[in-house]
Design a protein around this nucleic acid. Structure first.
Length: 222
DNA sequence: CGGTGATCATAA
DNA sequence: TTATGATCACCG
């Protein structure tokens, strides 16, 4: 696939069409080489799925399917269907955050509608043998959105107060803040504890595993 | 042995 | 450097 899906129905049909296939089959049909492992190709699975569903490759700060208002996320799971990793959402703004609120936040926008594609992710399974699972189109329930908003507001408050260096991944019930960069030497500007500008590692918002696990399980029951 | 903090590839 | 796509791997 290479053309953009023209409707959510078409997107879902494509996603359902690749469910059950393994990554070797998917790579072959796209004529992509299969890496030995993901150590140096951490985004490979996500990009392969994007390719098959017709997402336009690029580094746009918006949804994968802007016309459909849908964000695509592949998520590695174990045999119980539970997530093996947290889910990256977006980079956290650390400066000029005065006018930001939940309603206009990048987190809310990204998570307003997500197409989750579970993929077997246990390292014991050779990459090519890992299978694609059934897609699920998710929109946060009121309760889920409330949790996300609470965490987002608390984290952003602390960032605004210059407490970025005190925030760890343990903060937040469903959303956490962790480094997101090429390495520990990458720096960006943020607010220091006396209101001054400081340099710190870029941070990203991530969904905790327990939260995404509930999402996957709730759809499994349907 | 699970999570947190660190890291990898690539485009613009 | 910041954005996209995430998983790696060390430490408690």
């Amino acid at each position: 696939m290479q053309s953009s899906p023209q409707s959510i129905e078409q997107l879902m049909q494509r996603a359902q069409h690749i469910a059950g296939l393994n990554l070797a089959q998917l790579a072959a049909s796209a004529d992509w080489p299969l890496p030995k492992d993901l150590r140096r190709d951490k985004g490979w699975v996500g990009q392969l799925i994007e390719h098959h569903l017709g997402a336009q490759a690029g580094s746009k700060p918006e949804q994968d399917f802007p016309e459909l208002g849908v964000e695509l996320k592949t998520i590695p799971i174990n045999e119980q269907g539970q997530p093996l990793e947290t889910t990256f959402v977006c980079v956290a703004p650390l400066l000029n955050i005065a006018g930001l609120n939940w309603a206009n936040s990048n987190v809310k926008n990204k998570l307003s509608c997500v197409l989750w594609i579970p993929v077997e992710g246990r390292r014991e399974i050779p990459l090519g043998q890992r299978r694609i699972g059934s897609p699920l189109l998710w929109q946060p329930t009121q309760q889920e959105e409330k949790l996300l908003q609470q965490d987002w507001e608390e984290l952003m408050d602390r960032i605004a107060l210059g407490e970025i260096e005190q925030i760890t991944a343990r903060h937040g019930q469903v959303l956490q803040l962790r480094p997101k960069a090429a390495n520990g030497k990458a720096l960006t500007s943020a607010i220091g504890n006396r209101g001054q500008q400081i340099q710190t590692r870029p941070r990203g918002f991530y969904l905790k595993k327990e939260f995404t696990s509930q999402i996957l399980q709730s759809y499994f029951l349907v």
